[in-house]
Design a protein around this nucleic acid. Structure first.
Lengths: 146, 146
DNA sequence: GCAAGTATGCACCTTTTGGTAAGTGCCAAG
DNA sequence: CTTGGCACTTACCAAAAGGTGCATACTTGC
């Protein structure tokens, strides 16, 4: 087969990161990256993981205050999912007043480790990123201009 | 000050990954990780970046077929954003029929590098992740049960 | 002449995501 | 006895993200 495009130059790239998906009923991850992304998808999940990786077991309230701007609903929801996914461990001391803390499981810790380079990239290119966002916002404002 | 909680054990964690946000008008990244996440947010962006990192300049059509399940709208949209953000370079050969290809800029390449650990994590823990998703879906099915 | 392919654009709509606000049970401080 | 904090829970909503499908301008193949 093959379409035999105009030039033979751009047709020889060994693409394959997601090729072998059966497209049946299985989740079908395109590649490891895809799989990972689905686990950490959620506005605050990576932050929570990274956060927990920095200290020991952290209490709900501390986490809440630490990850500024997160709402109870979201934090709880994410924590529940992370727990269900085996990334964090929840410990309820059954005390009154309630006391609960969260910590990473080995799996969660390994994921947090994998997040480090992203954190580093962001830190190293903070200037670029900031500029990028400034431009994005500027563009957006023009759109609104009520 | 201090609430002087029941136990003095869980109160001494040096949290601070996002503390220094001015909370003014600036985007205010909580940390490098946060900054990075905002740039790559988008269902297919990481995949596209990672994909482009694997080969040389890739034509739109190839990319489209490679990142299975992505729609034209999304691919184009993400590519535009990635270009605007200085992560990918778009080359229009102004030919007829149209020919365009995309490649990573140095910045984009560095980000792609930072994504490698995530890809590796996903690959190494593919089994766990698959199981996790199987459970998630099972739970969802119970919810539906029309 | 009509279908197909190229790289996009655009309108419309659904799903997902996230935010707000109020409420719960319980206890301690004022 | 009102207020406040803890760790959530729930209902309701707005916004964003993503998907579908049609359209474009032009060419090549049948």
């Amino acid at each position: 087969m093959s379409a035999k495009v105009s030039d033979p130059v751009s047709e020889s790239l060994p693409i394959q990161p997601q090729a072998e998906t059966d497209s049946s009923t299985l989740p079908g991850f395109t590649c490891g990256l895809d799989a990972t992304l689905r686990v950490v998808s959620g506005k605050w999940k990576p932050l929570v993981l990274y956060f927990l990786a920095q200290g020991g077991p952290t209490r709900y309230g501390d986490l809440r205050r630490a990850v500024r701007d997160v709402s109870d609903k979201m934090l709880i929801q994410h924590l529940k999912e992370l727990e269900a996914d085996g990334l964090v461990k929840r410990t309820d001391y059954k005390e009154i007043p309630p006391r609960v803390d969260y910590s990473l499981t080995p799996l969660g810790r390994s994921l947090a480790q994998a997040l480090v380079p992203l954190c580093t990239w962001g830190a190293e290119n903070m200037a670029e990123v900031t500029r990028i966002f400034a431009e994005r916002d500027a563009w957006r404002d023009k759109g609104r201009k009520a």
